[in-house]
Every structure is written in C-alpha cells, then in structure tokens.
Simulated scan of single mutants.
Amino acid sequence: MRLKRIWTIHISTLITMIIWAAMDPLFPTMVQRYAWAGPAEAVGWIRWGGLASLVVIAATSLAAVLMTRTQRWRVGLRQSSLRRLLAITTVIALWCGLVIHHESIAWQGKRVRFAWRIDELEAIVAPLRNQWPERDGELPATGPFMAYPFGRPTTLVLLQSPALASQHVYVSAIERCDDGAIKLQLTGTDGGDWAEWHPPHSRPISFVGGLADPHQLRTATAIGSGWYLVRYDA
C-alpha cells in the first residue's frame, strides 16, 4: 500500500509537470539553460518555487520506488519483476521525453490557447482585408499606426499595441503579403511569435518585412479559419 501511494504521488507529479509545460507561457524560459543562471524575477519566485518543489517531489518519490523495488528483489519477490522494471523504465522515459520535448509541448499548448483567440484576431484583421492603409493613420481595432515603406506600405507599426482579451498578448506590428496574407507580430508574456491569416492556397513562408527585416520560417501550425501560429528565426 505504501509503494502504491508513492507511485501515485510520482505519477501525479509527472502529469502536473506536463500540464504546466502546456499551459504556462513562461515554462520554457524556466527550463532553458540560461534561465537557471539568471535572476528568478524573470519568471517569478512563485514559479521557481513550484518548479523546485515538483522536482524534489519527483526525485524523492522515484528514489523511494527504486529503493523499495531493490529491497523486494533482494528478498526473492521476483514474480512480477519484469513488469515492475518495465514500469520504472517507462516513467524514466517519460521524464526524459518531457525534458527533451518541453518546447514542443509548450508549442502545442500555445496553439490551443490561440485557437480560442481567433475571434479577437479577426477583429483586428477583418477591416484590413478590405482596405489596407496607404499612409499613417488610426483604426478602431489597432489605434494609431505608422505605415512603411512610404508610398506602398506593407507594414503597420502600431504606436499603441492593442491587447487581446487575455492581457498576456499584444500586437506590435502588422504585415501584409502580396498574396493577401496578413501577419500579426505578437509580444507580451504569451507573445514572441506571429499569428497569421492566409487566404486559400496560401501558407506561411519565410519573408522580408517592410522594414527590411528578414524572417526565416521555423515552424507553423494551423489553428483554424485560415489562421496559423507561426515562429520565425529572425
């Protein structure tokens, strides 16, 4: 019974860590190598404390499981030793997978969050599909902006970045492509990437912005209704 309780604690810790990786925009920052040496204020002391607590609980419970199994094997309880060894190996493999693929898990979590924000993104982009500005101006959904390059602008630099309803994401600039695609550059806690609307037969690709800034496509994921969540290497 005691061993079963330890297993329950350990598996619960693993599941909690996976859910956290998917739901918290700052989780990748915490586990990146430079973050460990940086100030905790970058992600918050509560997050650091929570992460440290989960790591300690996971390590302690796994060590307890291994010690208990070793003791039982020594006294000759080998009937289900292969099954027990497989269970321990599977759990260790899951932890290794979490460490190696935490960015992919975080990306899929972000994809789900932005799938719920399509209506907010549409409110910004819809007026621009019909009439793209030809000079500096102001729009209800975006506020004041500056249009670049002069004469035939393809980039709107927003002077007051509008926030999505979550208040964790802001739109800092908007790009328009020759095929009609409209790209929103995202900033904020859950920003750092692009939300893009593409017409049929158009897909995210590498591009050079209106300010002559190159963007090399790293990954793109459809989130519905012609929208994509996109990450570029600048």
Rank of each mutant, 00 (worst) to 15 (best):
E138H: 13
A63D: 00
V43G: 05
A163H: 15
E138G: 01
A21G: 01
A181P: 00
W95Y: 12
Y148H: 04
L186S: 06
R218T: 02
S12I: 04
R5L: 14
V31G: 04
N130I: 09
I57A: 13
P25K: 06
Y228H: 13
M146N: 11
Q167R: 15
I18D: 01
P200N: 04
L164F: 14
A165F: 14
I223Q: 06
W116I: 06
P162N: 13
L66F: 07
A63P: 00
R33T: 05
S80R: 14
A35S: 14
Q32H: 09
Y170V: 14
A173S: 15
L164M: 14
R117K: 07
L217Y: 04
Y148N: 02
V99A: 13
L121K: 01
I223N: 05
L86S: 13
W197C: 02
S104L: 12
D24F: 06
L98Q: 12
A163S: 15
T70A: 08
L82R: 13
D136F: 04
P149R: 09
I205H: 09
A165C: 04
P149W: 10
P140N: 09
Q131C: 03
M146G: 01
W48S: 10
V31W: 11
S161A: 15
V31M: 12
I46T: 08
G210L: 09
R84P: 01
W194G: 00
P127G: 04
I18R: 00
V112H: 11
M23W: 07
C177T: 15
A58V: 03
P144Y: 10
A126S: 11
I124H: 01
D136M: 07
W227V: 03
W48A: 13
I6V: 15
S53K: 01
V56A: 13
Q32L: 07
T70S: 12
V65I: 12
Y232H: 05
L159T: 09
A64T: 00
I46F: 14
L159F: 05
R33Y: 10
Y232G: 02
Y170L: 15
A22G: 07
W20S: 02
R129N: 03
T221F: 06
G180P: 01
E196M: 12
A173H: 13
L184P: 00
L156N: 03
Q216A: 11
A181W: 04
V56C: 05
I46E: 12
T90L: 15
I15G: 01
V75G: 00
A234K: 08
Y228G: 01
L14F: 05
I6L: 10
